[in-house]
Design a protein around this nucleic acid. Structure first.
Length: 828
RNA sequence: GCGAGAGUGGCGGAAUUGGCAGACGCACUAGACUUAGGAUCUAGCGCACUUCGUGUGUGGGGGUUCAAGUCCCCCCUCUCGCACCA
């Protein structure tokens, strides 16, 4: 290795080989040190890592290395979220097998990650597509089924005829399949559901305890859960034997109901209009609405539209007959699928009423204003005082809510009710490349779980993915033909596979015991390592993955596999990497390839820049010139060490008793930097300011040792500064620092040597520059001894020439002295 | 529409509890070294005015204060999330 230049390629290879051969970052729970579990979201093995990965894993690695130097027993694992549709698409495109494609990608990406010098314990690597992994997922499925937390349901799904598969909502773009661009059709299908709704309240309540999560993510989760409290009230329908139940958050407005709206696909819609002569019209309207909702651009709201059903509901409080409309804005899936319409106090009902010329009856009056149903132009939705509401008139709306609900309950036609937006999690996928759902259908016994001893239900490898995209499992008798575990008769396996979000809902726990064969989780290990102390990933998973993982943790806790309530104690959501102001994408041609950068500058430079360019939670604008700057900085440090190698290695580590002035200055700056970098990294993740602090120290070092300075710092102090720079940078640019550390004569690796500590005494400044303001404007600056007393400051200030000039002939009204900072003289 | 976050030089971004706005880096300008410079070093670099200097300046407007990027009120813009949720 030529040490005259910064030969990053040779340096990085040397240390990566060493880390790999010596398993430097392998950890075990048998340690005296306190544990720290740092996890980054594992990648989908799509082929190559992208800049988003580089950023995510660089951030994580800094924290892992920092915590390790602080003496923690750091678990820092990596693995592969390896099931998913892209593998099937690639298999079709390249006439290969999803498994082959996936494993090849994993091999390549693993090399890329190792090439970044990330400090993973690779002995814990997981690939979710391996039977050793998904076997346990199938076991969970069965356990959940036995507990009633998994159930089958026939429901409407997004079906793509061309691709022969169900699509998740997020895979439907403007009503079309993201893959083939054909229209997606709703289709009634049987599917398996996880009963996440059993955990709604806990998922919501625990949000308040997740102090280490960004408020933004918690808000998104709360919104997604969408709790609202109100009342359910039954309405009798004239000439119809069933009651219609509505849900409302405003029972206080019930006297103002002038009609009723129900979803066009409400479960009673057909029965309801039977015999009214309006059946055809209603059916046509339901069909039209369905199609429009399919086609609808989510950006714009559908115009409100409705059709009278020919029936009337009776308001239980007033006895009024309310016409029932099928309305396109009422959702069958939310609440009860029917609403009482109070146009005076609900904007949607108001718009609908005006459109169809229905009465608007005011029952809530705001203070200091009198609303008139005939003339009002917008609904009044706030609180107020009840009017036209029988015995409840004059009550404030808050009280009325309670009283009206109470009376409905007493009289048996209503109750207090809470509704959630959150739905159960449909996990069936008509795909091949996923974990098979371990259930068997039997003509005689119905659906039966696969016995535990028969797990895993292995994905058959010998299949071809056809162009149609249809899962080969459906027609593969060797897979689905089996016997019923109960009666021994012929059975057919479930041919659907699980949503890939199921794998990622528990992988973090499996890292605690990746090789465990007695069960999914080794209780001792997971109890030691969990929860994850710091989780890091993109904000795009704010709801789906993070909610599912929280749910799974609670389920696994209740089955007895885990002891924690929440999987991730602290969460950091990093921003996107963008270029030219927009997200990197092939179509925009602004993609930066990490391989190219690493080849050109080395992994350390790429890491350094991605940490320096922006704080983690913000978007990072990629700049080729910025990368150049990071490279330049490392060279600057390298050069200093190289040019001073002899002095540095010869110099003692013991600091001398007395120091000259430049020594004191450098010593102070060194300790200030140690202090700042530590506090910037620890918990704050301000890597950008940490790096700039080290740059400042480097600049100071150059300045104080420059050719023309009259007196240089002592070599011991220079050595102290250089070693601090190397130690402080080491979590960010590990190869570079290890190499220099070694050349400086250290026998122990930096990875496992302690984080430097600072001397609080050394940090203190001898002299302070005191800013002197007159009427709030900076007019002069004074050098004073630190902690100088007020009288001395006053005296010195008034004696200053510039100050004299500005206060001459004026009256001093006030003098404000802020210790060690500034003086403000108020004159008139 | 609702919710969250943000708005600071040419650019990325700094600025404890209110206390020198623009740290650090990029770009740019001038100079040095050099056969050469896309290496390195030195100096400059918010804007305006004629220089020392003075004025002005953190999306806009108002306020509190000796002092506001920071606190309070109103408005504007952008990003993200949710979106007819009854």
């Amino acid at each position: 290795m030529n040490t005259n230049i910064y030969d990053f390629a040779a340096i990085e290879k040397k240390w990566q080989d060493k880390w790999k051969n010596e398993e430097t970052f392998k950890v075990s729970s048998k340690s005296q040190a306190k544990k720290y579990y740092l996890l980054e979201m594992f990648p989908y093995p799509s082929g190559r890592i992208h800049m988003g990965h580089v950023r995510n894993y660089s951030i994580g690695d800094v924290v892992a290395r920092f915590k390790r130097m602080q003496g923690y027993n750091v678990l820092h694992p990596m693995g592969w979220d390896a099931f998913g549709l892209p593998a099937e698409n690639a298999a079709i495109k390249h006439s290969t097998h999803p498994a082959k494609w996936t494993y090849e990608n994993i091999d390549y990406m693993k090399k890329q990650l190792q090439g970044m010098g990330l400090s993973y314990d690779w002995s814990r690597e997981i690939a979710t597509c391996r039977p050793e992994y998904y076997k346990w997922e199938q076991l969970f499925f069965i356990k959940l089924y036995e507990k009633g937390l998994v159930y089958p349901k026939v429901t409407t799904v997004n079906w793509c005829e061309t691709c022969q598969t169900v699509l998740a909502n997020e895979q439907v773009i403007d009503g079309c399949c993201w893959r083939c661009d054909e229209s997606v059709l709703p289709r009634e299908m049987n599917g398996w559901f996880f009963k996440i709704t059993d955990y709604t309240e806990e998922l919501l309540a625990e949000c308040d305890n997740l102090k280490g999560w960004p408020e933004k993510v918690l808000t998104m989760q709360r919104n997604w859960i969408g709790k609202s409290t109100g009342a359910e009230i039954d309405f009798i329908v004239d000439g119809f034997d069933k009651k219609l139940t509505i849900f409302t958050t405003r029972p206080d407005t019930i006297y103002g109901a002038t009609f009723m709206s129900i979803a066009p696909d409400h479960k009673y819609i057909h029965e309801l209009c039977q015999g009214t002569g309006r059946e055809k019209e209603i059916t046509a309207f339901a069909e039209k609405t369905r199609i429009e909702k399919q086609r609808q651009n989510p950006e714009d709201e559908l115009a409100k539209e409705g059709v009278f059903t020919g029936r009337y509901a009776v308001n239980p409080f007033t006895g009024d007959k309310l016409p029932i409309y099928a309305a396109n804005f009422v959702l069958a899936e939310y609440g009860t699928g029917a609403v009482m319409a109070v146009p005076a106090h609900d904007q949607r009902d108001f718009e609908f009423a005006r459109q169809y010329d229905l009465p608007v009856k005011v029952v809530i009056q705001p203070a200091g204003e009198t609303l008139d149903g005939k003339t009002m132009t917008t609904a009044y939705e706030e609180a107020g005082t009840l009017v036209n509401s029988g015995e409840f008139s004059t009550l404030p709306s808050d009280t009325a809510k309670i009283k009206i609900t109470e009376q409905a309950r007493e009289q048996g036609f209503g109750k207090q009710q809470t509704t959630y937006r959150l739905r159960d999690w449909g996990i069936s996928r008509q795909r091949y490349w996923g974990a098979p759902i371990p259930m068997i259908y039997c003509q005689k016994c119905g659906v039966q779980p696969v016995p535990e001893k028969d797990l895993p239900v292995t994905l058959p490898p010998d299949v071809t993915i056809e162009k149609s995209g249809k899962s080969p499992l459906h027609d593969l008798a060797s897979f689905h033909a089996t016997t019923c575990p109960r009666c021994g008769g012929p059975g057919r396996r479930e041919t659907d596979t699980m949503d890939t979000f199921v794998e990622s809902s528990w992988y973090y726990a499996r890292y605690a015991c990746p090789g465990y064969t007695e069960g999914p989780l080794d209780k001792q290990e997971v109890d030691y390592w969990l929860p994850v102390d710091q989780y890091i990933g993109g904000v795009e998973h704010a709801i789906l993955h993070l909610l599912y993982a929280r749910f799974f943790t609670k389920v696994l806790r209740d089955i007895g596999y885990l002891s924690v309530n929440e999987p991730f104690a602290n969460l950091l959501t990093q921003g996107m990497v963008i270029k030219d102001g927009t997200k990197m994408s092939k179509s925009k041609g602004n993609v930066v390839d990490p391989d190219v950068l690493i080849k050109r500058y080395g992994a350390d430079t790429v890491r350094l820049f991605s940490l320096f360019a922006a704080p983690p939670e913000r978007d990072l604008e990629w700049s080729d010139q910025g990368v150049e700057g990071a490279y330049r900085f490392l060279n600057r440090v390298y050069r200093f060490v190289h040019d001073n190698m002899e002095t540095l290695t010869r110099s003692a580590n013991v600091l001398p008793e007395t120091l000259n002035s430049p020594s004191r200055e450098l010593h102070r700056k060194t300790h200030q930097t140690i202090s700042k970098v530590g506090s910037d990294i620890d918990g704050k993740f301000h890597f950008n300011t940490a790096i700039s602090a080290v740059m400042e120290l480097t600049n100071t070092l150059y300045t104080l040792t420059g050719e023309n300075v009259p007196e240089k710092p002592r070599t011991e102090i220079i050595k102290e500064a250089v070693e601090a720079i190397i130690q402080l940078l080491s979590p960010m640019v590990p190869h570079f620092c290890e190499e220099i550390w070694q050349r400086l004569g250290h026998a122990t690796d930096l990875s496992h040597s302690p984080w430097p500590s600072f001397d609080p005494e050394a940090i203190k400044e001898d002299f302070i520059t005191l800013v002197v303001q007159i009427n709030g404007k900076v007019r002069s600056k004074l050098q004073v001894a630190a902690d100088c007393d007020e009288d001395t400051v006053k005296e010195k200030t008034l004696a200053d020439d510039k100050v004299q000039k500005f206060i001459d002939g004026k009256t001093i009204r006030k003098m404000i002295i802020v210790n060690n900072k500034l003086v403000n003289i108020v004159v008139s």
